[in-house]
Amino acid sequence: MSLLPLLGVLVVVLGFAARLNPLLLVMAGAIVSGLASGLDFAGVISAFGKAFNDNRYVSVTWLVLPVIGALERAGLQERARDMIARIRGASVFSILCLYLLMRQSAAAIGLNSLGGQATMMRPLIAPMAEAAGEARLGALPEKLREDIRAQAAAAENVGWFFGEDVFVAIGSILLIKGFLEQNGISVEPLQLAVWSIPTAVLAFVIHATRLYVFDRRLVRASRTAPEGNRA
């Protein structure tokens, strides 16, 4: 077994750390690993081209952007903000914790498409979380508003990742079952789903606690923010 192909991994890891353009370093990583494994340059380009073509479905998700853009043009973000600003007692914590719970529960019963960074987070949930913060704490500086949006995106990911495996028919459960069968071990998808529950519960508890801590920090930071930074 040769360790030379790992050079491509090294290129990618160092490149990300140095914040180089990710497209260039992914291409470079593929070329280095491919050459190290004995392919010639044309062979690497062909292998990458084939894989790129086979994975076009990954980019199909961008088709939602014209719709999201049209709705934002019509005031979708503003409507999401208005709704939340009218709810007394809404906070960044309550909005994002509720979203985390809903996202995780929906994923756990197989409703995976009810969410998404482009379809839910950008036009709806992130503006709602920001509005909740500003309704309670007054206008916030841009840095804190960015922090809120980053936390919103994180809640989407955590909710989805640690909800979906509780559902029996999801890809990762089927992958596990198939892999174990190849190795002569038979498990039922339901067993795998059940053993995913403890982690799902812990994920919710840990992340909800972190959202609470973030909210407290936000309250403190908004008090100490210099007036000049306020919009």
Partner: peptide, 27 residues
């Protein structure tokens, strides 16, 4: 999005090339 729009598909392709090059077995 700019370059980020192409990155997910690029990384999927990189994964395939890594697999071809034997990165998985090495690790």
């Amino acid at each position: 999005l700019g370059w980020a729009s192409l990155l997910p598909q690029m990384l999927a392709a990189l994964g395939a090339v890594f697999a071809l090059a034997g990165v998985g077995q090495a690790i």
